[in-house]
Amino acid sequence: MTESMYEISYEKDRDALIVRLPKEVDHHFSQGLKEVTESYAVMGQVRCIIFDFARTEFMDSTGIGILLGRYKFMRALGGTIALANVSGRIQRILKIAGIYRIIPNLEWDMKEQ
């Protein structure tokens, strides 16, 4: 288990920002995400933030707050967010929180792009 699994990493691909979420998405491991995505969106002309859950095994309601917050922020700029590689446990958390009803067309298949 490497320390980097707990870190968020960011990668810009054309007008999308891919946020690779850490192994555990909680209040501690998510600090700084708001500021970094905002600077990318404003400075880097990002239209869509894609949250990649490939490494993520745990998420609490902090993750829901992040997604809703980033969705509102991107909508205000005329953009949106999408989710990729969502596993069973994370999907359950998202369903309970009603995320799929709030944000349309959320699932993103990275292989097709």
């Binding site: 708001k34 309601s61 902090t62 707050g65 992040i66 809703l68 917050g69 509102k72 309970i96 929180a97």
Partner: peptide
């Protein structure tokens, strides 16, 4: 329900 003003807390803690 959340007391957070920056809009980054979901208010879902007790619900979870």
């Amino acid at each position: 329900y959340t007391t957070s003003t920056e809009g980054e807390r979901s208010g879902m803690g007790f619900t979870f």
